[in-house]
């Protein structure tokens, strides 16, 4: 069999096992949280009778193992069940929210990845000169500011003072993937770009610099090849594996880590959905979100691994 195909199959198999393990861990984790669903859901207005009635109604008096396998049985057939809290189908809400989140993440990534990789290359070109230092200072400053602060700054300047961007609440209209919605999400997407930019930029810079010190780059330099050409043709292709890895981690962050940005822009994404569900221990929703998040991480990491292998002939033909 083609080594790439067998590698792919192997990775997918491991991924599925990982997701299963994560779902079991999540189940146990939520089970261990103090306070149960009925009590948290009713909040301050819980009476012992109402709590007991809800528990019975949802089958919470069943043992944990039974409930886990009941749930797993549903998921295998593609049904995440219904929310305990509002008794509506998890699938409907989940895919709508996931679509919103992916839309925001993809728009942010389309800007963030080329900008950060490009800036990283520019920084190497002007290594230790003014442009390099400027890029470093600005990106470090951006990464040092918490994202909610950046979000508030953007809302204040662009939505309130200048009136050129949409402030909260930002609710994409159907269909989600449209040009009109790209305009709508400009500010949250820009916030995310600022947040992930520095990390990717600095990793690109470090990876390329590492290669710039190697003998073949020195040879190229001695041959009289132009600096930018060396970076583009010799250094960057060899630095691609670590860059792909850091890009994958940041893309995963754009999907699963954006809850703060969602809250301050009142954007109906997955993070918000997940947090709402955890607050009241709405197990079917927590599980569904957890599985989706895990899948996003695993898939992106798998793609990064495969990309790194394809970019490296030595890994393509292992002895």
């Amino acid at each position: 069999m083609n080594p790439v195909v067998s590698l792919l199959l192997q990775r997918v198999g491991i991924g599925v096992l990982l997701i299963l393990a994560i779902s079991a861990l999540l189940f146990i984790g939520v089970e261990l949280l103090p306070g149960d669903f009925a009590r948290n859901f009713l909040g301050q207005s819980a009476t012992p009778e109402a709590v007991a009635n809800i528990r019975k109604d949802l089958g919470l008096d069943q043992p944990v193992i039974t409930r886990y396998f009941d749930w797993l049985g549903g998921v295998v057939t593609g049904d995440f069940g219904e929310s305990w809290a509002n008794r509506s189908s998890v699938n409907d809400q989940l895919f709508k929210r996931l679509s919103n989140t992916l839309f925001l993440a993809v728009v942010a990534a389309i800007f963030a990845v080329p900008i950060s990789v490009g800036l990283g290359m520019v920084a190497v070109f002007f290594r230790n000169k003014l442009p390099d230092q400027m890029i470093n200072i600005v990106s470090l400053a951006a990464i040092s500011m918490p994202e909610f602060f950046i979000g508030y700054l953007f809302i204040f300047f662009f939505a309130l003072l200048l009136g050129i961007g949409d402030g909260p609440p930002i609710i994409p209209s159907d269909p989600v993937w449209s040009f009109q919605n790209i305009q709508l999400i400009a500010l949250p997407a820009a916030t995310l770009v600022v947040v992930v930019l520095a990390h990717m930029m600095r990793m690109t810079r470090a990876a390329i610099l590492n290669i710039m010190d190697s003998a073949y780059v020195e040879t190229a330099e001695l041959k009289g090849v132009k600096m930018m050409t060396i970076i583009r043709k010799h250094a960057a292709p060899n630095a691609i594996a670590p860059i792909i890895n850091v890009v994958a981690i940041n893309l995963a962050y754009l999907v699963v880590g954006v809850v703060v940005v969602e809250v301050i822009f009142a954007y109906p994404g997955m993070g918000q959905y997940f947090v709402d569900a955890v607050t009241v221990r709405d197990m079917p929703v927590v599980q569904a979100c957890g599985v989706v998040f895990a899948a996003v991480y695993i898939i992106l990491n798998m793609l990064a691994d495969i990309g790194a292998i394809l970019a490296n002939p030595r890994l393509m033909h292992p002895k």
Partner: peptide, 18 residues
């Protein structure tokens, strides 16, 4: 009814006319 749980976001929504 729009759900805006963040206090600052709520004020921003009112002042920006949303």
């Amino acid at each position: 009814v729009l759900v805006i749980n963040d206090t600052t976001a709520r004020v921003a929504a009112l002042t920006s006319g949303k």
